[in-house]
Simulated scan of single mutants.
Amino acid sequence: MSKDTLINYVELPCRDLPATKAFFAAVFNWTFTDYGPAYVEFHDKGIVGGLYQSELASVTANGAALLVFYSPDLATTQQRIEANGGTIIKPIFDFPGGRRFHFTEPSGNEFAVWSDK
C-alpha cells in the first residue's frame, strides 16, 4: 500500500436531510453543498463526506463504524447536541485516555464525542 493512501471521504445514510443538515450546522458548524434532493456533501474541520437519502441508519449495534468527535468541553457539547434534536444514547463515561458519550442525530446515526479533559 502506498504511503499516500488515506481515508478521504465518508458517506452516511440519512432519513431526514434537512433536519440532519440543521443539526450539524448548529452543533458543529458544518457547511454543505447540495447535489440534488437525495445527496448533500458536508465540509468540516478535518473531514469531508456526504449524506444520502436512506431509511437506514449507521449504528454500532448493527456493526457500523463509529465516527468520534473531539471536544475540550463535553458538557457544553452535550448540551448543544440535546438542544438541537440529538439524543444521548450512552451518557458520559470514563475510558483509558479520557471520557466520552455517544449520541444519535435526527436521522438516527450514532456518533461519539470524547475529551481528554
Rank of each mutant, 00 (worst) to 15 (best):
M1K: 09
M1C: 08
S2H: 14
S2C: 09
K3H: 15
K3F: 15
K3Y: 08
L6P: 01
N8M: 12
N8L: 11
Y9A: 05
L12H: 06
C14E: 01
C14Y: 02
C14K: 00
C14F: 06
R15I: 06
D16Q: 04
D16C: 06
L17E: 00
P18S: 10
A19K: 12
A19W: 12
T20W: 05
T20E: 15
A22V: 01
F24P: 03
F24D: 03
F24Q: 02
A25I: 05
V27W: 02
F28A: 06
N29K: 11
T31D: 14
T31S: 10
T31C: 13
T31M: 15
D34R: 14
Y35C: 02
P37F: 10
P37E: 12
A38P: 01
Y39P: 01
V40W: 03
F42R: 03
D44L: 13
K45D: 06
K45V: 13
G46W: 14
I47D: 02
V48I: 14
G49H: 03
G49I: 07
G50D: 08
G50S: 07
G50T: 09
L51M: 12
Y52P: 03
E55R: 14
E55W: 08
L56H: 15
L56Q: 15
A57N: 09
A57M: 12
S58A: 15
T60C: 10
T60Q: 09
T60D: 05
T60Y: 04
A61Y: 10
A61R: 12
A61D: 09
A61N: 10
N62V: 07
G63D: 13
G63Y: 14
A64M: 10
L66K: 02
L66C: 13
L67A: 09
F69T: 06
P72H: 08
P72T: 07
D73S: 11
L74W: 05
A75E: 09
T76A: 09
Q79D: 12
Q79E: 13
R80I: 05
R80Y: 08
I81C: 13
E82L: 06
E82S: 05
A83D: 13
A83K: 04
G85A: 08
G86N: 01
G86A: 02
T87K: 12
T87W: 02
I89G: 08
P91R: 05
P91Y: 00
I92R: 06
F93H: 11
F93D: 11
G97E: 04
G98P: 01
R99H: 13
F101E: 00
F103P: 01
E105K: 03
P106T: 04
P106A: 06
S107W: 00
S107I: 02
S107F: 01
N109W: 04
N109V: 00
N109H: 06
E110M: 04
E110W: 01
E110V: 07
F111H: 00
F111D: 00
V113M: 07
W114E: 14
S115T: 12
